[in-house]
């Protein structure tokens, strides 16, 4: 569990993780916020559904993918928090566009 070891004075901003409002220090990356909040897994892989969390914290491993303000597959370790930012876990593949599986059952 990550803990704060004594952070310098920083302004705080409000972000929304799923349904929960969190006050976080300005300048934090989204990945740092998740780890500080004890959120260990931020996504499930598209291949097997295995849980994954941040790994490299420098933008190379693409393990910390989350949905930010509705945009899927954002690297949490490369994005910095902003007031009002919405953060959600990424479940499998990017959920964009129509869903062919839903379209299977025409309403008529």
């Amino acid at each position: 569990m990550f803990t704060n070891i004594g952070i310098r004075d920083r302004d705080f901003v409000r972000v929304i993780f799923e349904d929960q409002e969190i006050m976080v220090p300005q300048g934090h990356t989204v990945a740092a916020v998740l780890l500080a909040e004890g959120i260990r897994s931020c996504r499930e892989t598209p291949v097997s559904g295995a849980p994954r969390g941040p790994y490299c914290m420098m933008g190379i491993c693409f393990e910390c993918l989350v949905v930010i303000d509705g945009e899927p597959n954002q690297q949490a370790c490369m994005r910095h928090v902003r007031e009002g930012m919405s953060i959600e876990r990424q479940h499998g593949v990017a959920q964009i566009g129509p869903d062919a599986n839903a379209a299977q059952d025409p309403a008529e």
Binding site: N73, V93, A100
Partner: peptide, 9 residues
């Protein structure tokens, strides 16, 4: 592209 939800059969 990255993997996205199935849209195109």
């Amino acid at each position: 592209s990255e993997k996205v939800r199935s849209f195109l059969r």
